[in-house]
């Protein structure tokens, strides 16, 4: 077993909905080994996305610690988390979340604006990322000119362009047909196996979860059981 890349210990997360207090995650302990590909499944509202947000430093736990690599996310400021995310995590969303006013190339370059790379270096790296996802010939296209699968590939290119160790995917195939979904999942597998990316993927789709090495089930804020993929 590889050393853990991410480690959550005693993590709880509570939301206040009006006067109601909703505990989304309760005393979660989990380790994610470096180079792993994990699917997180569970019913709606079970806390899957919250778990993903905590791993990505988008949210902070009310109790417990979240450690990713050498960073203790739960004790970092918002600004520190921003800088950490820029270099350590890539995000892939269900609805791609590309900026419609930018071409595929410029969308992929976005995370590199936060680096010291020159304009030429940014363009070169974005071109490599687009090549990896098989969209080198769509670099000048705007999101509206791409299919859903192509948009998701651009989003994956954007997620990997700054060479992060961890990829967090929130329902990456939720908006795609089966065939396109399989293409995207194979691409994630390649990124995991050939490029060594650690991937955590939230999904409702059991077939999608089969592409992962193992699956975590979350229900009512707790990790139910782990099943080998």
């Amino acid at each position: 077993m590889s050393k853990p890349l991410a480690k959550l210990q005693g993590v709880s997360r509570v939301y206040q909905k009006g006067k109601e207090r909703v505990e989304v995650l309760h005393d979660i302990d989990v380790e994610i080994p470096e180079g792993d590909f994990i699917a997180i499944m569970g019913p709606s509202g079970s806390g899957k996305t919250t778990l993903l947000n905590l791993l990505g430093g988008l949210d902070k736990p009310d109790a417990g610690t979240v450690v990713v690599g050498d960073a203790e996310l739960s004790s970092m400021s918002n600004s520190q988390l921003s800088h950490w995310r820029a270099t350590h995590v890539g995000f892939i969303f269900q609805f791609y979340n590309l900026l419609p006013v930018l071409t595929a190339q410029k969308n992929v370059e976005l995370p590199l604006l936060l680096t010291r790379f020159s304009s030429k270096e940014r363009a070169e790296r974005a071109a490599i990322a687009l090549d990896i996802v098989g969209l080198a010939d769509r670099a000048k296209h705007y999101p509206r000119e791409l299919s859903g699968g192509q948009e998701q590939r651009v989003a994956i290119a954007r997620a990997i362009v700054s060479d992060p160790t961890l990829l967090l995917c929130d329902e990456p195939t939720g908006d795609l047909d089966r065939e396109t979904a399989d293409e995207i999942l194979k691409l994630l597998q390649i990124l995991n196996k050939e490029h060594g990316k650690t991937i955590v993927m939230v999904t409702h789709d059991a077939q999608a979860a089969e592409y992962a090495n193992r699956t975590l089930l979350v229900d009512k804020g707790k990790l139910g059981f782990k099943a080998a993929a």
Partner: peptide, 15 residues
């Protein structure tokens, strides 16, 4: 709003 949130997700600071 969601695009601005994406920028922050990518590592753009509040400032």
């Amino acid at each position: 709003i969601s695009e601005l949130a994406v920028l922050k997700t990518l590592g753009f600071t509040d400032m």
